[in-house]
Write a protein that binds this DNA or RNA. Sequence first.
DNA 1: AACAAGACCTGCATGC
DNA 2: TGCATGCAGGTCTTGT
Length: 279
Amino acid sequence: MPELPEVETVRLGLLPALKGRKLVRVTLRRKDLRKPFPAGFAQKLTGAGVLGIARRAKYLLIRLDNDLTLLTHLGMSGRMRFLEAKETPGPHDHVLLETDKGLRIVFCDPRRFGLMTLLATKKEADHPLLRDIGPEPLDAAFTGKALANILAGRKTAIKTALMDQRLIAGIGNIYASEALFRAKISPLRPAHRLTGPETSRLASAIRLVLKAAIKAGGSSLKDHARPDGKMGYFQHSFAVYDRSGQACPGCSCDLSRTGGIQRIVQGGRATFYCPHAQR
DNA sequence: AACAAGACCTGCATGC
DNA sequence: TGCATGCAGGTCTTGT
């Protein structure tokens, strides 16, 4: 499911249910996801109060009052969902969190590419999973100039660079294609060859598309939904993603002659773009 | 050092 | 109907 906007949507959905609450019961329904749960995982969570929830790249950081942070990654298919009163967990509901208000939250992840672990809140920044992540694109410091510095010397294709979490945090396969379309830049361009005006356009496009997607509750293709079950609707605003052969919304060219939006593969992932509108 | 390819896992759409 | 194939929002490791 999840890129930055979807993870942020989950964060906003969980926050009112968890902040200020205490976890009274934690149930693991299997022993691992992408990695095994750490020793004493459920015990350390049980009885802890939730101070708040932060997000870094595609990770959720649930801050607890026992100096620990519950670090969660949703992988491809992970989802957080409130369980109805009489509802029983399904086969892919791997972790159950119950609050002192009786609310049950499940972490559901059919493909199990997700991750849940604990880390010391004070040492958060040094954790191997977090320490090498690049700047947050929604921070004020993420300007065109900052992006130009990040891309300097990078010969890899710009689409691949945008998805590299060490360079920029939180952009995945959908929003990389969508941001490049909005900036009118070809995904195939070597990253270090973008001009100053282009990096400015791209930085703005990234911020705009991420903000619009958060506002829409993310993109619900298959797995993503908000914790309350409501769907995101940004998928209706895709300009290029998963639209190969269709007309490009920024291009008045004749579809039968241009072939419309193209699907190519970069770094093993599908890229969607319009060769006419994006240069 | 940089890049591609494979691995991890399940579910779904497609085509025969 | 069943079966094979390919593809999916992401990392992480291995090999060139």
